[in-house]
Design a protein around this nucleic acid. Structure first.
Length: 199
DNA sequence: CCATTAAATGGCC
DNA sequence: GGCCATTTAATGG
């Protein structure tokens, strides 16, 4: 957890339960709360001009959601959409500021979290600009394993993404992802077992 | 069992 | 590589 639940509670936090596909906030909304995921998975996305989904980032238990905007005076540039049933705790922007004021040690944690996101974004941008679909997919898979997998052994990490999600993340079409992953399977870069991807 | 959703295929540009 | 149509799982009520 980025910030201790009990501490958030002391600053008047409320907890909400979300069903899959529900929306926490939308593009253009004004940030009013600090959100933190108690459990569940959510995604930050954008629907492009062709009505196609672009996944900007995936967030999981313990992560906060677009916290960096609370220090700015801007609107949300993305939608936050629930993927799996989620429990999310939130406190108002004002209470968040109060909390940071009285808890300098939290400021550092938040800074660190934002720095990690920044770091990830640079890696992602670097990867996604490759002219080769295979490179985009491979590096995205490696990225996920580094981020979520404890075991570094080959084929030990079950990629928690559908082909479609992988396509929306890499900016490719689902058919391309399917075909590329099969090739990577043949090349022993990964293994497909019961349609699941292991890397 | 049926409906829904995801994955896989093949043809074509 | 993308687009489209179609088929083939897998999932859940």
């Amino acid at each position: 957890m980025l910030i201790d639940k009990n501490l958030l509670s002391r600053y008047g936090a409320t907890t909400d339960f979300y069903k899959p596909k529900s929306i926490i906030f939308e593009e253009g909304d004004t940030p009013k709360y600090y959100y933190q995921i108690i459990s569940g998975d959510i995604k930050l996305n954008h629907i492009d001009e062709n009505a196609r989904e672009v996944i900007i980032s995936l967030l999981k238990t313990g992560d906060s959601i677009c916290e960096f905007l609370l220090l700015l005076d801007t609107k949300y540039p993305v939608n936050a959409v629930v993927i799996t049933e989620s429990t999310i705790i939130k406190i108002t922007k004002a209470d968040f500021a109060k909390m940071l004021n009285s808890h300098p040690e939290i400021v550092l944690d938040v800074c660190k979290f934002i720095s990690q996101r920044l770091h990830h974004n640079i890696i992602k941008t670097k990867n996604i600009t490759s002219p080769f679909a295979q490179v985009r997919i491979k590096s995205m898979l490696n990225f996920f394993k580094d981020l979520n997998g404890n075991d570094k052994t080959d084929y030990s990490f079950a990629v928690p993404l559908t082909r479609q999600q992988l396509a929306s993340i890499t900016g490719l079409r689902i058919e391309t992802v399917i075909r590329c992953i099969k090739k990577l399977d043949a090349d022993k870069f990964l293994e497909i077992r019961q349609r699941k991807i292991y890397i």
